[in-house]
Design a protein around this nucleic acid. Sequence first.
DNA 1: CCGGAGGGTGAGCAAGCGCTTAGGACTTTG
DNA 2: CAAAGTCCTAAGCGCTTGCTCACCCTCCGG
Lengths: 208, 208
Amino acid sequence: MDSAGAAETGGYQPWSEVTPDAARRLLVAAVETFAARGYHATTTRDIAARAGMSPAALYIHYKTKEELLHRISRIGHDKALEILETAADGPGSPAERLAEAVRSFVRWHAAHHTTARVVQYELDALAPEHRSDIVALRRQSDAAVRRILADGVRAGEFDVPDVPGTTLAVLSLCIDVARWFNAAGQRTPDEVGALYADLVLRMVAAKP
Amino acid sequence: MDSAGAAETGGYQPWSEVTPDAARRLLVAAVETFAARGYHATTTRDIAARAGMSPAALYIHYKTKEELLHRISRIGHDKALEILETAADGPGSPAERLAEAVRSFVRWHAAHHTTARVVQYELDALAPEHRSDIVALRRQSDAAVRRILADGVRAGEFDVPDVPGTTLAVLSLCIDVARWFNAAGQRTPDEVGALYADLVLRMVAAKP
DNA sequence: CCGGAGGGTGAGCAAGCGCTTAGGACTTTG
DNA sequence: CAAAGTCCTAAGCGCTTGCTCACCCTCCGG
């Protein structure tokens, strides 16, 4: 369990935007414990101990435990949105862009399922004022996917009777990967990404 | 919030297997608070207060707070499994059975999204010995869906390169309805069920 | 060599937690 | 009508929680 963070990400996950070093170690420790036990079941002592510090050290870098969650959620949502928008606004046909969006979004949720679990499933633990700016990011993610679907319908590539509903379903399917994905399982993030991209393309394909 | 339980279910949800009356009231209160705030964020005082009793009353009917969760999880998983197996072993072609399975499973998750949220997303809060018998039920659910897919492939109705992976995706898609479904939203459980049945059929359809 | 700033600790507070206990009010039964 | 059983409560115990505070390092420019 101690090296789960490094093992999960293949040894490379920056969190480089978090400084100084001690603040980053605390944040990484928080991600790991939040993911394993849930936000409410995690104590500030758990986090500090995992980061190799005393309980009081946490409060030098963060005002509250909730601020830690908010920072994690913010960084994760920024990344998720970036992935989707890159694919949505990239080159290629709607089908290619949709496949790339699903593939990379799913790959991220699988490879970083620890982070993703916190980001996607601990929203309700945020304070209302923090929750609302995260919800805004989620709406942008929704808009990115919807944009691809609408483009595909307009181009005649897709047959999607209910664009908002299908958008919801596609995002829901991808997000839920964070819940069930197990790093010790058989499938690699790449494999899951490829499978899901295929399934989603079938969901929207125009009947020839 | 007080009448949310009744409103959500259209005034009819039995929990009839739970007796006596006070035990059922406590259990319903627990479902509502667990769903709204999460298991760990819910106190035994919250539950008792919502059921209109003193904190001590809970311990007449349940040994621990965790036993309450286990009972809820057990009843919910029994119901979910029954829905899937009824569809899987029912009459009709594989496509019809798959559509019916998804439609009824999704309808249940939407109509009873409060219960479903607890059942599907609070598994980790169970004690290990309780968790394992719930996991066994989930494996049976997985087997039911897999059975339909395998039948469809054998009959040449479906084109599914990865049956275990697609089974996982279908269940994941349906389960996640409990997370995002909002009783105050525009869609009815029936509508979501119909949409999802269509999407899933497209995912597995053989190319003509 | 000094002094202050930034990063850390040990001890602990007030509040809230799950759960227990002693006992009381009703209802059912002989 | 007493005895027994059922259901519930008021009070509170022992512990853990998020967080604070007084103090202590170590580094570094002057």
